[in-house]
Simulated scan of single mutants.
Amino acid sequence: MHTDQPQDIAPDALPQVITRYLDAHRAHDTATALGAFHPDATVTDEGKTHRGAPAIETWLTRAAGEYTYTIELTGAEKVDTDHYVATHHLEGNFPGGVVDLHYRFTLSDGLIEDLVIAP
């Protein structure tokens, strides 16, 4: 049965590649985080798209050092076998200080093909 409605899932039910990326990103482990992406993947964050491993590596490095913040995984949804959403609550020294962000993942061949981060 195919539905277009996302299903709430337990955060620990997210695919392993997403969990590996999220854990590595939180730990500022750029190499492990980067390894979760296709070489030609795209990441869209703050309205800017970063395409390919070199651009994503630069984004990961910059994102890790720009602000100090806490991040908590507060929810997860499965849209279909290749699309997942992880919701994070962030608090820190960035403009506004508090935000809930949706990390929208598209998977392909067991790796992250596309990630869009937006409120």
Score class of each variant (00 low, 15 high):
2 H>R: 15
5 Q>H: 09
7 Q>F: 10
7 Q>E: 11
8 D>P: 00
8 D>G: 00
10 A>C: 02
10 A>P: 00
10 A>N: 09
15 P>Y: 06
15 P>M: 08
16 Q>Y: 07
18 I>A: 01
20 R>A: 13
20 R>V: 09
22 L>G: 04
24 A>Y: 02
25 H>W: 10
27 A>C: 07
27 A>Q: 12
28 H>Y: 10
28 H>S: 15
28 H>P: 03
29 D>H: 08
32 T>H: 07
34 L>D: 00
35 G>Y: 05
36 A>K: 01
40 D>F: 05
43 V>R: 00
43 V>I: 11
45 D>W: 06
46 E>S: 13
46 E>A: 12
46 E>Q: 11
47 G>N: 02
48 K>D: 09
50 H>D: 05
51 R>Y: 01
52 G>Q: 02
53 A>Y: 03
54 P>R: 05
54 P>D: 06
55 A>C: 03
65 G>R: 15
66 E>L: 13
67 Y>M: 07
72 E>P: 00
74 T>D: 09
75 G>F: 02
75 G>V: 06
76 A>N: 01
77 E>R: 14
78 K>W: 08
80 D>M: 07
81 T>N: 11
82 D>Q: 12
83 H>C: 03
84 Y>V: 09
85 V>E: 04
86 A>F: 03
86 A>P: 01
86 A>D: 06
86 A>C: 09
88 H>W: 12
91 E>T: 15
92 G>R: 05
92 G>T: 07
95 P>E: 04
96 G>Y: 08
96 G>M: 08
96 G>C: 10
97 G>H: 12
97 G>A: 12
97 G>D: 09
98 V>N: 14
100 D>N: 12
100 D>K: 06
102 H>Q: 12
102 H>F: 06
102 H>R: 14
103 Y>G: 04
106 T>A: 11
109 D>I: 05
111 L>F: 08
114 D>L: 05
116 V>F: 06
118 A>Q: 06
